[in-house]
Design a binder for these strands. Sequence first.
DNA 1: TAGATTGTTAATCGATTAACAATC
DNA 2: TAGATTGTTAATCGATTAACAATC
Lengths: 208, 208
Amino acid sequence: MTRLPVYLRSLLELASDQVSTVSSERLAELSGVNAAKVRKDLSYLGSYGTRGVGYDVGFLVDQVGRELGTTRDWPVVIVGLGNLGRALANYHGFGTRGFRVAALVDADPALVGESIGELTVVSIDQLESVVARGQVAVGIVATTAGSAQDVADRLVSAGVRSILNFAPVVLSVPDGVSLRNVDLSMELQVLTFYQHQAHPQHLGTASA
Amino acid sequence: MTRLPVYLRSLLELASDQVSTVSSERLAELSGVNAAKVRKDLSYLGSYGTRGVGYDVGFLVDQVGRELGTTRDWPVVIVGLGNLGRALANYHGFGTRGFRVAALVDADPALVGESIGELTVVSIDQLESVVARGQVAVGIVATTAGSAQDVADRLVSAGVRSILNFAPVVLSVPDGVSLRNVDLSMELQVLTFYQHQAHPQHLGTASA
DNA sequence: TAGATTGTTAATCGATTAACAATC
DNA sequence: TAGATTGTTAATCGATTAACAATC
């Protein structure tokens, strides 16, 4: 369920504001969704609310966190240390959700041995061994489009079961492997699409 | 339509491979979707295919590109130049889609004046003026969660109508402003959710 | 003409949400 | 008891996709 992390974020915010109880209405507002949807989503986890009262924030944080596995340790390998890979390597937002960058891998010999944060970049030749040694569960692909599928294949055969892909290409992975894609250009393109529809061109023949 | 950029990416790939004609079946395969969906999406743009033959790749690139506004110039302002903001400022994938980083803005006086790529970071005090001067249409929010809403408000009142938000917070924007969110921790969390469901814990009481 | 493939209809599926009985 | 709010049903909505007539 893709909305659970959003609820967790809102709940953690409430908890840090010392709020002890929250209604589905309020949680929905904070999370930017419909209240009925919140209740339905939460009821899927179990019957954790109290009619007439609402949900206990602390208890719900525990339950949602447990469902999402945030208390687990998720070692992550980042493949490709261009600008984006570096930003991810230095990103401190992962820690609180159980993610830990365990290894940095790049194919460029010039980058191998370089320190980024507290880690040292290792060669792509060692991909399989760092995955095995670090019990890496998640791979982040921040390579060029050209090498992304090859990297994904190697991650999968090394045992990685979750891949977050930043390369602008459609990857194929076997059943049982989770894949998500973030394509920054595409996000911008979707965003401006609506704008362009409303106010096309600004060129040539005027339309208004 | 959020799939158009995916089709465009596949079509550009075909074009660079000198492929002149493509069927909905093949385009669907390359884009990772259903063929009927491709035909339906494309028919919304107009009747650009030929029955029994397929679609002309070059022509379709033009039509989809025009629909998406890729030939237009989209000046972008990046607010917040931490690791992520820097990576975005240096990212070269934007150019081919019509996006151009026109200004870099940060609230930290220590960063103002610094050169990143070909641009110089300016103070947040000048946000409104750089937006106006550069006719900036798109704002990228790469600040902390705490300042994101304030930045978004200022972008909107300065005239920005499309916002891409990387801060881990739900932003509210008025009608007519497009908003998309990319939360990296959340992507990872959604990703590992399915994995965690299949193989929970690895702690305490064994379940298998 | 026979084969291929589009464009579009209509059926299917799943997600969203209003509504309300249950109940604190 | 009266008010509030959950959990869940059932209706609604929109998106997906199979199927096929149109037609190159």
